[in-house]
Design a protein around this nucleic acid. Structure first.
Lengths: 223, 223, 223, 223
DNA sequence: CATGAATGAGAGTTCATTCAT
DNA sequence: TATGAATGAACTCTCATTCAT
């Protein structure tokens, strides 16, 4: 329905020869970038492949050379971004086990929070997460994939680590074992807040994340 | 008009059940219920008014007797549900001031959590909230309205109450004054979890809310 | 998008004739011709773009490749035809001044009449004029454009010429200076007659025009 | 397509009792008046029966109590107005034969012109004529009826009278016998001009009619 | 590989017509 | 008779998808 902006015509038609949009470069990547822009702006349904093509400086038909259809483009876009996230996540959580001196869970939590602020909130990745949140329910396959590859893995990794922290006395209760969600909660709130209410009242995401972690661990760490 | 072909009159198809859908009942309400179903299922863009009509056992044109257009139907649907939420929220927060013995903030938080679990998570209202979250960014007006009427009010009411709790010693730090969001965070996570991952791994929302509150207040209440 | 039902691709129905309507030819022109047919037949409101498309052997959507909407199609159709008319008119009226021996106004009038009979009554242009007459009141912009570009120009050109004819003694009274409309009147009657009553009683337009001119000038030319 | 005005809501809902629009009076007439207004404003296709009903202070269904459908309403509206016109016309033309001293055709022409200015141009009847002109081609039945009842009658009556004038020496040539249309031409031009261009350049209809008659007869009456 | 004109199913919206009250 | 809520066919316009070049 396109509540806002009208379509703005592409300024220059690129001449016809010249730098033909990426030339030999990865057209696929170009299209994905453009698709992220448009999907973020309008959501899945309201995004027009025409606009994606325009933004990618590519003909409409070209998209179909690389993607089966609109839905494939959308799903591949999201899936493509999930890989790095998983990698980062596992790296950090594993990090705690490889170092000689074991890193306390609290320290790990702070690292994850920093990572989140820098690598998600501060980048286009927050839009990916938002898209998963908003369009996910309409794409059961996507939700399932996301659950399997990210959520369940992240949760169990964190749970395992939290269990150790309980055993080692870093945590007094098993709250975080039962509800690792509590670590993620402020992150979610941040993403949603940014996209809807930040213009009315800006939110200091870093401080919010820090506050939650401090609360979570201050409570637990008391003697 | 074409001089020839007149419009064909309605055969007398009547659906087969003989009774005119809802008869004297409130068509408007019927339509709103059906609309909530469809919008929840598909989101704004992907919802077809044809399906809303079908679900409401009403002709497509009938919708336009009660709503200007698709967007109006959508917005009125959401706004209509926001009112009660505001009412409930204010009632609970005000409740703490009217009783002779002041209700501790912690107790209030639990009441709000219960309210949330019963009145939102347990009802269609959770779908309303989800719709606001997912479609909000595409309806600036809606986001603004929601911020003004719900978010900012709720936040400042809670902040005022939290400040008093700090002054009266119930809370040791001003974390909750700065980030009332932390009370809402698990609620949001719950709504999103329910709509995407509950079938893979059910979430005990009540326990989650309780855990967060306990953490929030246990920490603060230490001597 | 509904996750399920993809849009069905075009079967390869192709109309049955194998050749893509007009192929490389000017689709725009095809559409304009078809539009003139349909608009002439039914008027603006009653014309269905579906029928225009069918008549142009073109898909419905194709029309929107060349015209913004139904109204644009209509207006461009009319405007495109007005240009030539203006050109012809000015050419004839100017013709009288360029020739060595000045052409008498009467002679000019006959030329304009012939032009009208050949170029308007005898062609599709009479339908254009009819459309302007019948739809004009509903398209204020069109009426204004038509007045500015055709009527006022034609009238003042004729008036100027008529004034000269008065000064030079060709005309005895200033009737035609005050009412150049009298030259146009039989033309209008012809167009309307042709479209409504010609099948009951055919009208010899040429003779009608000639009769009016003769009357106009016979009277004036008496000593 | 409704180029102009939005529907304006009826100011007062009429209370419910009170003067229920014409009460026992002729609903049919009310509706016809309202229909003329709307059809004149928007043409046949673009007119909404809803608006006719509103303007007639009558429920939409009521229209169908008096008229079979929209087209009937339209046709009956136009036919109803043709009677008086025929009457007037015949009265005037007959008038010339009943008076002792025969009225000259020229005098008759002036009388008709006056009648036209007073009874058509100066009243709603000009809208009727306009509707016949603009919608006629789309309603073959109407055009035929109109030709039979008005045009052919009027024409042959005038022709008979003109023939007499020729025989009696009032007219020298048979131009008006062959083309009685020339008497009507300026009237048509007037009606069209009034509806399209009068705001840009007002036309003195009476003077125009008089000029044409004078030309027609001055020429003929010379010795 | 790339293009973009062409396609046509589909969605929102309107409004003549019906009919229970 | 009169009403006006309800109906659903029809119409405009959009856009994912195809395919000749």
């Amino acid at each position: 329905m396109r509540t806002s902006a009208k379509r703005k015509p592409r300024g220059t038609t690129d001449g016809g020869q010249g730098k033909r949009a990426g030339q030999g470069a990865d057209r696929r990547a170009q299209i994905l970038v453009a698709a992220l822009d448009e999907f973020s702006l309008h959501g899945f349904e309201a995004t027009r492949l025409d606009d994606v093509a325009k933004r990618a400086h590519v003909a409409k038909g070209t998209i179909y050379l690389y993607f089966k259809d609109k839905e494939s483009l959308f799903q591949e876009l999201l899936r493509a971004q999930i890989g790095p996230v998983i990698g980062m996540l596992e790296a950090v959580l594993a990090g705690g086990t490889k170092e000689k001196k074991p890193v306390p869970l609290r320290e790990l939590a702070h690292r994850v929070a920093d990572l989140f602020v820098e690598q998600v909130i501060g980048t286009r990745r927050k839009d990916i997460v938002r898209l998963i949140l908003t369009e996910g329910p309409r794409f059961p396959k996507l939700a399932e994939f996301y659950y399997r590859e990210v959520i369940s893995r992240g949760l169990s990794a964190f749970r395992a680590r939290a269990k150790r922290a309980v055993n080692e006395g870093e945590l007094k209760s098993d709250t975080l074992v039962r509800f690792p969600h509590l670590i993620v909660a402020p992150a979610l709130v941040s993403i949603i807040w940014k996209s809807m209410f930040d213009k009315f009242e800006p939110l200091d995401v870093k401080a919010l994340m820090k506050a939650q972690i401090d609360i979570l661990f201050d409570k637990e760490e008391r003697p």
